[in-house]
Design a protein around this nucleic acid. Structure first.
Lengths: 231, 231
DNA sequence: ACCTGAACACCGTTCAAGT
DNA sequence: ACCTGAACACCGTTCAAGT
């Protein structure tokens, strides 16, 4: 996929933007682990050391990559500025989620690197402003920011994804494995059984992360709204 | 700190447990980035290749490291099995937080690696069981698990930590910088100003993450309790 | 069974050199 | 100004060899 980029028929001049865009594309296609200076260079039809002309180091490259993702996030939210505060926040968080789904590696990279892209501050300032407009005290707005966690970025750090859970079930021993699983984890097994309405394989597809994202978001918004009204 | 470990005066035989314990200690002391096969080996007073006798690969080493952290988490929660469901969950989540504070690198490692330590499943089964006992439907228990996010592990993925925010303020230009900041981020600046009761430097210490962790946790527990009662 | 030494492929990065 | 080649220090890992 990135191979055609090495095509030198035209070879327009490199630029920081092109480097970062290629880096994002590479991470999207093959994961952030494949994003290496040498590999990125060959994708761009250039030698590895040329990249250092546009990026001081790999760490800076990663920061730049995160920066472009959040620029994308800012661009994806045209901000109608109309409607209730809850729907405004909701709309924007869901827009962020759409962006993150295109860059599944971004959350992990964000938590790994300590740095925060500059656009994020403006984003949070908008969130705080929206809360204050809605009658939140500064104190409650502060609490709300923390409570939101990573929801403003469109991802809930759910560690218990079904993909990571029962990913490797040997078809031969699956039945015995499931029986052992039911014994070791009775409550989870019962819960999964209840939640699987309709036919579907047991390991995948019983979680609709979109629905659950919105549930969590609404749960928090409801709770905050209740605290806001109570004073 | 790990240097003394290279002392070969006694040199009791290596073992998988010792290797993993040394790896955790190294990550605690110098971060997960310093945890390299070669460095870990010298800490243990041994050659790098010897580690492969106890661990098949570095990826497996990292998984093992996560495993020991979560074993620690399981051991830290003696589970009195008494009290209301909310206090039981609260107690356990806060115990998890105490463990994670000792291993600040663990959350990032957990999200980076796709794998989930086996102990985690039993842990979540206990959570689900506690919810079901309290009268939660299977459906709501499922939603709750997702809503909790990474709170059961004792960390909220708060991206907006003040440390990462204003970490590098040049003392010479701090005043001008703060003025520019106030213009660019008016709402956040106002919020910080309101939240800083008492004297303290502007960049640090205005967030008490313990308090905010508990606030978020209670907010979720309250919301879930309300949904539970409503049927 | 447990540990080592040399070697391989792959990193990020420096530096002098090309155009 | 932009790009390259060779080189350095550092990875994870293999493999034959030591005890």
């Amino acid at each position: 996929m990135g191979k055609q980029m090495a095509d030198k028929t035209i070879r327009e001049p490199l630029s920081r933007e092109r480097v970062l865009a290629a880096a994002v594309a590479l991470a999207d296609a093959e994961g952030v682990k494949a994003l290496t200076m040498r590999r990125l260079a060959t994708d761009l039809g250039v030698e590895a050391m040329s990249l250092y002309f546009y990026v001081p180091s790999k760490e800076a490259l990663l920061d730049g990559v995160l920066g472009t993702v959040f620029a994308e996030l800012a661009a994806a939210a045209p901000e109608p500025a109309e409607g209730e505060w809850r729907t405004r926040l909701r709309r924007r968080f869901l827009a962020a989620r759409a962006v993150m789904l295109r860059h599944p590696w971004a959350p992990g990279l964000l938590t790994t690197r300590g740095t925060i892209p500059p656009d994020v501050f403006a984003y949070f300032d908008w969130i705080v402003g929206t809360l204050l407009d809605a009658g939140f005290s500064h104190h409650l707005a502060h609490r709300a920011i923390h409570a939101f966690g990573s929801l403003p970025f469109g991802f809930a750090q759910e560690v218990f994804s079904p993909a990571a859970a029962g990913g490797s079930l040997d078809p031969d021993t699956a039945e015995a494995d499931l029986a052992a699983l039911a014994e070791a984890l009775p409550h989870i097994t019962a819960m999964v059984a209840h939640e699987m309405h309709g036919a579907g394989d047991p390991t995948l597809g019983w979680c609709d992360s979109q629905v659950e994202f919105e549930f969590t978001l609404d749960l928090l918004l409801d709770g905050l709204d209740r605290l806001r009204a109570r004073r």
